[in-house]
Every structure is written in C-alpha cells, then in structure tokens.
Design a protein around this nucleic acid. Structure first.
Length: 345
DNA sequence: AAGTACCTCAACCGCCGGGGT
DNA sequence: TACCCCGGCGGTTGAGGTACT
C-alpha cells in the first residue's frame, strides 16, 4: 500500500531551520485559527512548508507552554523511572513532564542521561548493572577468595594489614549486592571458606578502634548501589568511620547470612551525599517519588526476579520507606524490586 | 590561529494506527 | 473490506557550536 509521504505533493517546499518570519506566520495563524488540519495549514498560513514540518515546529518549539532549559533533578528522576517502565515511549514519558516535548526528552536521554548511566555502569536499555563493567570487581573478589581458600590468610602479606581485610569485606559486600541485582551474571563465591574469617584475626580487631559514641549508622541501599563504581566507600577511609560498617558486615558473616547493607553517613544537616552522574551532591533527605510502579499501575517490562536475597530486599524496601533515603538510586531500586503482581521477570 | 574531533539538538524521514468513506 | 487521509511516534541526520590539539 505504502501511501506517499505527506510532502511529496509539495514539490519545492522549504526544509531546514525555520526563519523568524516563518515562526511569526505560523504563530499568528494558530493564534487566530487554532491548530490542526496540518496538511492544509501551510497554504492557509502562507508558509512554504509541509504540514508535518509546521506541526513539528509548533509542537516542539513554538507552543506557548514549552518549558526550556536544563532538566531539573526531579525531571531527570522521572525520566529515568518512566524509561525503565515504558522504554523509548518518549511521547508517553513527555506526557508526565509538563512543558517538555518528546523530542526534547529523547534528545536529552540520548545525549546526557544515557551517557551518565553508562558511566555509572548501568545499562540504559535494561536499567540493570552492566555485567561487563562488574567483571573487574568480580575478578578481584575471586582472587581474594582464592587466596583465602588456600589458607593463606594468616601469613599472606596481602592480608596482614587492616586495609586489606577491609577491602576484602567491601569487595565481598559489593559482590553480594551484585549477586542480588544480577544473580545470573555474578556467580556465587560464597563457597570460599568464610570460617577462616570467623576466627577474627587478633591483629586486625585490635587495630580497629571501637567507637561507643557513634551510633550504628543507618543502612542505606542507595549508598550501597552508589558504591558500585569508582567512588566505593569514599567516606570510610578512617578507622573510626569504618568501624560500624565493619561490625555490620562482620555480624552478618558470623550469622552466615548475607552481609548487611553498608553504612552511609548522613551529613550534619540531614542531607544525604550521593553521586549524581559524575558529581557528588547533597540531596534533601525528604521527598517522594512522583511515580512508582505501584502508583502507576504499570507492569515492568524487563524486570528480573531475584530469587536470592529477598530478606535483604525487604530490608531495602523498609529502608526505602525511610524519609532519609530519597535519591536517584532509589528510583532505580524502586524499579527493580519484586512486586506482588507477577511480571514477565 | 587553524584544523579536527566531538557534542548537541532542531528538524527530517519513514512507518504506524485510528478514523472516515 | 479496502483504501485513503491524517496525526503522531521513534529513529536518524546534519548543521552549528564547542573543545581539544
């Protein structure tokens, strides 16, 4: 069938960037007559353009309610969530962002947000961590596991200092989290002998200062996932800061459970530090997600069921309900947790 | 200053689905 | 039922701007 393109009949119509006088003509006509009947509009408005071009110019640029300028944090967050829900349905996404056009959102996604997600190791299509990007972590984790499994923990110089053990525990924690997120991509290395860890090496423990004043910090799933990347636990280089984290992890290992969520420290003003793209910024500790799977009533194409770590995910859920946990990552987490409605994943 | 590479985004293209005849 | 018209959508392009060498 293939009907002809709308502009075939309009031989010699102008293409390319619009001139101000063309804009003026189009706006003046629509102001007077309203829009619609795009095919006949150019002739009526005295424009040497095809109807589609006029429509596009009006919808994407001349409409009075167009909102221009940088996307706000809330807008970006909404785009990420809706893209995870809807995929490249730009017009549907745009319908949730007043003043933004599908074209603008599409462009912004392709030029900014897609890049950001890739930098964060997130697949912009599936919204899941990219397994290829995790392999270096996995490799290191496996290397350490192998070393421990060989009984070298006690005399291997690699582990003869606190930093190495801390790093090991961090790696294990990250590994566990990755297993929960992408169980198929991250093989289980739990089989390595964690019992060797259960006999707390005295030199390590003795060198870590206890801190009775510092309460157990909140467990932060958002912070957990922020740790996947180049900024792993950057706030925890000091022993005092690291101690609660160490205790949490240690407790879980002793109970032979998944490690607890790592600690993320709130700053004094109630702000949560988080990485946002390649920048560290502090975000208000309150706020709500404008759209969630539950509120939207939409299913999640592409969601995966995580068979393991459900307890941890429940903890995450509890944490996510906490008012201090709002973050860009929370939105990702909202979209990756199982719901009661059975999805295809 | 000039050349080149990269980035951004307005605009175009081709296809699709709904509605009318 | 078949065909056509139209509006709308998503993918792609390329001109202009910017950064880098």
């Amino acid at each position: 069938m293939g009907r002809s393109p709308c502009c075939d009949q309009d031989k010699g119509v102008k293409k390319g960037p619009w001139m101000p006088e063309e804009d003026y003509k189009l706006v003046a006509y629509i102001d007077k007559n309203g829009y619609g009947k795009w095919r006949s509009l150019p002739n009526l408005a005295g424009l040497n353009r095809c109807g589609k071009s006029c429509r596009l110019r009006w919808m994407n640029y001349l409409r009075p309610d167009i909102r221009r300028g940088e996307f706000t944090y809330e807008e970006e967050s909404t785009v990420v969530k809706l893209h995870a829900l809807l995929g490249n349905k730009w017009s549907k996404i745009a319908s949730h962002l007043p003043g933004r056009t599908d074209n603008e959102i599409k462009n912004y996604w392709n030029t900014h947000m897609r890049k950001k997600m890739l930098q964060m190791g997130i697949d912009p299509i599936t919204h899941e961590p990219k397994t290829n990007d995790l392999s270096p972590i996995l490799d290191v984790s496996q290397m350490l596991a192998a070393a421990i499994g060989n009984g070298q923990f006690g005399n291997n110089t690699l582990f003869n200092n606190n930093i190495a053990v801390e790093d090991l525990l961090k790696l294990q924690l990250i590994h566990k989290m990755l297993q929960i997120i992408t169980p198929k991509a991250i093989p289980n290395i739990n089989s390595f002998n964690t019992n060797s860890l259960n006999t707390k090496p005295e030199p390590v423990v003795n060198n870590i200062k206890t801190n009775p004043v510092n309460p157990k910090p909140k467990l932060a799933a958002a912070g957990q996932l922020n740790a996947i990347g180049p900024h792993v636990f950057t706030n925890q280089t000091e022993d005092e800061d690291f101690m609660p984290f160490f205790e949490d992890v240690w407790d879980c290992f002793e109970d032979n459970q998944l490690p607890g969520l790592a600690t993320v420290y709130q700053t004094g003003d109630g702000m949560m530090p988080e990485y946002y793209g390649d920048q560290l910024r502090e975000i208000p500790s309150t706020g709500s997600m404008s759209v969630t799977p539950e509120t939207s009533g939409l299913n999640y194409p592409g969601r995966t069921q995580h068979s393991s770590g459900s307890d941890v995910l429940e903890d995450w859920e509890k944490f996510l309900d906490d008012e201090t946990s709002d973050s860009c990552w929370k939105s990702f987490l909202d979209l990756t947790q199982p719901t009661s409605s059975p999805g295809p994943w």
